[in-house]
């Protein structure tokens, strides 16, 4: 009895170590496509082999990723209006690293079950003035501290939480779109038609996870608090191959892009972090590091784009070409 308890405790201890080892491996590798069939049927995926103290090999359940924030389950309904205690989520985007790989968008769309033309975050090609070099500018919801969108909501379907996050409750949204008109950063999108089928049943909907979406309601970037509860970075931050998107908790003074963790205040100080259209007084929680000492020419971001998409940037590209001639 006593021994058994001890053993269970030990198994629990194993978990923490495991997740660390596992996550280290998971990084940097391509997707698993090749498959060896000789191991077919033996692998459970859920189990891990353990060499015990007495030299026996046993198989135990591989524990799921541990919760970092209690409770791990994203809250439903009005419970989601409360922020996660002690947290103050921020994002830092290093414009010097962005080359419009658009993996952030793909990751976000996949994670939130969005259709391919629904973009919670978008990468814009910006050019500040005639002599400026264009740069790629990823834009998600800024989760403003004084959110103009929340001010105008007639039914409180979108709300500001104490942990900085601005969420939309699809179960309450009446679809008036006033928040979309009020947002100066054009981050909100509307479900004009029936959203894609989701595996998540409607009764499991949490505003933190934002799936399943509902027709006739507004949706937007939610800063993935459901993933934060599991200690995971938002889809865009973990999806960026360049590590351009850092996410973290301002109260912890740390932001991470998955490979590198930096002190938030020091980073903003050293790299002169700024906020987009800060003068509007919305107090955004997304910071940008200016695109200085860039790792890529902005043109490299155009290479993989379809022609019609390149056409969108025509004005800027033409302007650049004329400048060089």
């Amino acid at each position: 009895m006593d021994n058994k308890d001890k053993k269970n405790n030990r198994r629990n201890f194993l978990r923490n170590g495991l997740t660390m080892g596992g996550s280290m491996l998971a990084m940097g590798m391509g997707p698993a496509i090749a498959k060896d069939s000789s191991g077919e049927g033996k692998s459970s995926g859920e189990k891990i082999k353990v060499l015990t103290t007495d030299g026996k090999v046993i198989e135990v359940d591989k524990p799921k990723d541990d919760c970092k924030i209690d409770p791990c389950e994203p809250p439903k309904g009005n419970a989601a209006r409360q922020g996660i205690p002690g947290r103050s989520f921020v994002m830092v985007i290093d414009l010097a690293k962005c080359k419009n790989a658009r993996k952030c968008i793909e990751g976000c769309q996949k994670g939130h079950n969005l259709s391919p033309d629904q973009e919670w975050l978008n990468v814009y090609l910006m050019k500040d003035h005639d002599d400026a070099e264009p740069y790629w500018f990823p834009r998600q919801c800024f989760h403003c501290d004084i959110p103009p969108c929340v001010k105008v909501c007639p039914v409180g379907a979108t709300y500001k939480r104490q942990d900085n996050i601005v969420l939309v409750d699809s179960n309450r949204c009446i679809g008036c779109k006033f928040c979309m008109a009020a947002c100066p950063y054009s981050v909100r999108i509307f479900n004009w038609e029936k959203p894609p089928e989701s595996d998540v049943p409607p009764e499991d909907y949490s505003p933190e996870a934002s799936v399943p979406a509902q027709i006739g309601t507004v949706s937007k970037c939610d800063f993935c608090p459901d993933r934060s509860r599991e200690g995971k970075l938002p889809y865009c931050a973990s999806g960026c191959p360049m590590g351009a998107i850092y996410f973290g908790d301002k109260n912890e003074d740390a932001v991470s892009n998955g490979t590198e963790t930096l002190r938030f205040r020091q980073l903003i100080k050293d790299r002169v972090g700024y906020r987009y259209l800060d003068e509007l007084g919305t107090e955004p929680n997304v910071y940008y590091l200016p695109p200085v000492e860039r790792m890529f020419d902005y043109k490299s971001g155009l290479n993989d784009l379809p022609e019609e998409k390149q056409e969108v940037y025509k004005d800027i590209i033409d302007g650049e070409n004329n400048k060089n001639n």
Binding site: M29, K42, S43, K49, T52, V57
Partner: peptide, 21 residues
């Protein structure tokens, strides 16, 4: 011979060795 491991979906396989061994 210790054991045979099967790689998971990410191509990795882990063997955990308890502290006492």
């Amino acid at each position: 011979f210790l054991t045979e491991l099967i790689t998971d979906a990410e191509g990795s396989a882990n063997l955990l060795v308890e502290a006492g061994y």
